[in-house]
């Protein structure tokens, strides 16, 4: 930020800095809740606020006891394992189904294209409470509530719209003569897909998969309705933590989740840059 131009009037200057100050406040609003939780998770006391010792950077006031609590607490360990089981399984399902559907949807001659697209995206739009209620009745008739199968299938549904959207976006401007070229050179459709299309749409597929994973990893409403004690995931455990027995352990979990989301975000950003480079767009 180079500062206001030299010909700016005092009013322009005031506006220039005033505008930046307002923006800084809004960015602070966005980021403060995430920044504040990290140091508090090292609080030695079971409080949710900064103690005097913490403010004077007294090393006694900090501790990793809440992190120790996570790794010694069976419930937390169990929920972490569950979150990964459900998240990874539903991501694999959602990515497979969603990528295939996106390939079909990218053809403009597909009949009823916009209607189908509307149906496929709807799980993202319908309020979760309605989805959860509907699924609860449906899966209890099938005796799949309180099972991993039911939860994985439910989360697959919620994840697919993201895969469809990201892969369809990668396929916009996809040059279909590439596949025809491959086929005219003797490649069968399967080979064409894996050797020509897949490498080009891979960034979209991976970012869709990440979205699907995060959707499942962060989902609590469907879990509240469908999961039993055995299927408790991290968000469900945090929900219980916030509602029932509030303890700084959830701050430690929250910090770990923030670090996790920073990693995911970095992967996604790298993918986006790679995608733009591949398609010959300006980097950035």
């Amino acid at each position: 930020m180079a500062g206001p131009p030299p010909y700016a009037t005092p009013l322009d200057r005031a506006w220039y800095y005033g505008f930046r100050f307002i923006c800084a406040l809004i960015f602070l609003f966005l980021i403060a809740p995430i920044l504040v939780i990290m140091p508090l998770s090292f609080n030695a006391e079971p409080y949710f606020t900064f103690t005097k010792g913490m403010l004077s950077l007294d090393s006694e006031a900090f501790s990793v006891r809440w992190y120790e609590d996570i790794i010694t607490n069976q419930q937390w360990l169990h929920s972490i394992k569950n979150s990964f089981i459900v998240g990874i399984s539903s991501t694999i399902l959602a990515t497979t189904l969603g990528t295939a559907a996106a390939l079909g949807l990218s053809r403009s001659y597909l009949p009823y294209r916009s209607l189908i697209m509307g149906v496929l995206i709807s799980p993202m739009i319908v309020p979760l409470i309605i989805t959860a209620a509907g699924m609860y009745f449906f899966y209890s008739d099938l005796r799949l509530t309180q099972t991993f199968t039911g939860l994985i299938l439910a989360h697959t549904v919620l994840g697919t719209p993201f895969v469809v959207i990201t892969v369809t976006a990668t396929l916009v401007g996809f040059d279909h003569s590439l596949t025809r070229a491959a086929q005219s050179l003797g490649a069968d459709p399967t080979r064409t897909f894996f050797k020509v299309q897949m490498p080009l749409i891979l960034p979209g597929v991976i970012s869709g998969a990440l979205f699907a994973f995060v959707t499942s990893f962060d989902e609590v409403v469907v879990v509240l309705f469908m999961a039993g004690f055995e299927q408790r995931t991290i968000p469900r455990q945090m929900w219980a933590g916030i509602r029932e027995q509030i303890s700084p352990t959830i701050l430690a979990v929250a910090t770990l989740l923030i670090i996790f989301s920073i990693c995911l975000m970095t992967v996604l950003e790298l993918l986006r840059r790679r995608n733009e480079r591949l398609r010959g767009l300006s980097p950035g």
């Binding site: 966005l30 980021i31 809740p33 995430i34 939780i37 995060v214 990893f217 962060d218 609590v220 968000p235 945090m238 929900w239 916030i242 929250a254 989740l257 923030i258 989301s261 920073i262 995911l264 975000m265």
Partner: peptide, 9 residues
């Protein structure tokens, strides 16, 4: 970053 951070967090 907030967009990617868990709702419950």
């Amino acid at each position: 970053l907030p967009f990617w951070t868990s709702l419950l967090v």
